[in-house]
Computed example of a mutant assay.
Amino acid sequence: MISINDSHQNSDELTPDLTPLLDIIFIVMVFLLLTATVKIKALDVELPQTATKILQTTKADPITINLVASEPYWALQGQSISSWDSFNQQLLTEVKTHPNKPVVIGADKKASVEQMLKLLAFLQKNDIKATQLLMEDQQ
């Protein structure tokens, strides 16, 4: 049997050295933090404003979509459209008839965000690329 003589050894010498274990835990923790993907569910967004004039204009006669604040919410090529379904059909017809024309969206400042998101979702679903979003210069 092994006996320990307290007079020759200090009690600190009997405890294990945890430094290598802590180093490994730290390295693994850093690795996991650097490789973890974080999903962002929401962001605080401020609406963009421009202090400079945008000189770029479309060369072709664009397909214009307008969102207004009150009903009827939709207008295509300057003509008000009373229902969403009718607007969808007319927009798809216009895009199929003139596939090379750029699509320009102009929304009233007080237009519903819900209507804008509905429009953007429809454009994405039907693979219609909007080339410009009109906005007013900051004054």
Rank of each mutant, 00 (worst) to 15 (best):
M1E: 11
I2P: 10
S3K: 05
I4L: 06
S7G: 12
S7M: 14
N10G: 08
E13M: 01
E13N: 02
L14V: 03
T15F: 09
T15K: 03
P20Q: 12
L22Q: 00
D23F: 02
D23I: 07
D23G: 03
I27W: 04
V28Y: 09
L32V: 03
L33D: 07
V38T: 10
A42M: 12
L43P: 08
L43H: 09
V45F: 07
E46G: 12
T50L: 11
T50I: 11
A60E: 06
T64N: 05
N66C: 08
N66P: 09
L67E: 11
V68G: 06
P72M: 15
W74L: 07
L76G: 04
G78W: 09
Q79P: 09
S80Y: 14
S82Y: 10
S83Y: 15
S83Q: 13
W84E: 09
D85Q: 03
D85N: 07
N88Q: 11
Q89D: 11
Q90C: 03
L91N: 04
E94W: 04
V95Y: 04
H98V: 05
P102S: 03
K109W: 10
K110L: 14
A111T: 08
A111Y: 06
V113Q: 07
L119K: 00
L119Q: 01
L120R: 12
L123P: 01
N126M: 10
L134Q: 13
L134H: 13
L134V: 14
M135L: 15
